[in-house]
């Protein structure tokens, strides 16, 4: 059993659920779910990670965005067993262990890039990957990359400002190094 888990295999629990080994925000954990549970449900209901939010439930809005092996995905469209042996990062994993917010999170605050904030955690995860993948993205490229994250309050301009500013801050940081 231990060996199979170490290899990232799904095993059955005594009550017939699935034990799904995965890395969650930097720590090895075992998610417990039924085969039909989504990653979204499992992260919220089993792990208490309420930063992962359900919006549309059909992969359109981006509120439930998490990183799976470093790439943003809609956790409402991932079945829990699919994450076996893989690495998940949620908004809860962005800040430092002592609670210091990441530079991206700080940029959102500095620009007040939210109103109700329901969409914010999804935007943060997508923007984090955008910043890694396209450190020199133009405003237009940021707009394209974030097009699949919806904000019903309409904070898009502020969100674009925050992400553009973050990229600039990181570029300045790189130059200073």
């Amino acid at each position: 059993m231990t060996d199979r888990r170490a290899q990232g295999e799904v095993t059955a629990t005594e009550d017939g659920r699935l034990a799904i080994p995965a890395m969650l925000n930097g720590r090895q954990t075992t998610l417990v779910a039924r085969p039909w549970h989504t990653l979204l449900e499992t992260l919220r209901d089993q792990e208490g990670l309420y930063g992962v939010r359900e919006g549309c439930g059909v992969g359109m809005c981006g509120a439930c965005t998490v990183m799976l092996d470093g790439e943003p995905v809609s956790s409402c469209l991932v079945l829990a067993p699919q994450v076996a042996g893989r690495e998940i990062r949620t908004v809860e994993g962005l800040a430092a262990p002592d609670g210091t917010l990441s530079d991206l999170q700080q940029a959102f605050i500095d620009h007040t890039a939210f109103q109700c904030s329901y969409c914010t955690s999804g935007f943060l995860i997508t923007a984090e990957r955008l910043a890694e993948e396209h450190p020199d993205a133009s405003r237009e490229e940021i707009r394209h990359y974030l097009a699949g994250n919806l904000c019903r309050c309409g904070s898009y301009v502020k969100i674009l400002d925050a992400v553009a500013d973050l990229l600039e801050r990181r570029r300045a940081g790189r130059t200073a190094d």
Binding site: G59, T65, P72, L77, G148
Partner: peptide, 9 residues
């Protein structure tokens, strides 16, 4: 196709 999240999966 769709958005970057769907394309990743």
């Amino acid at each position: 196709v769709a958005n970057v999240r769907v394309r990743n999966a």
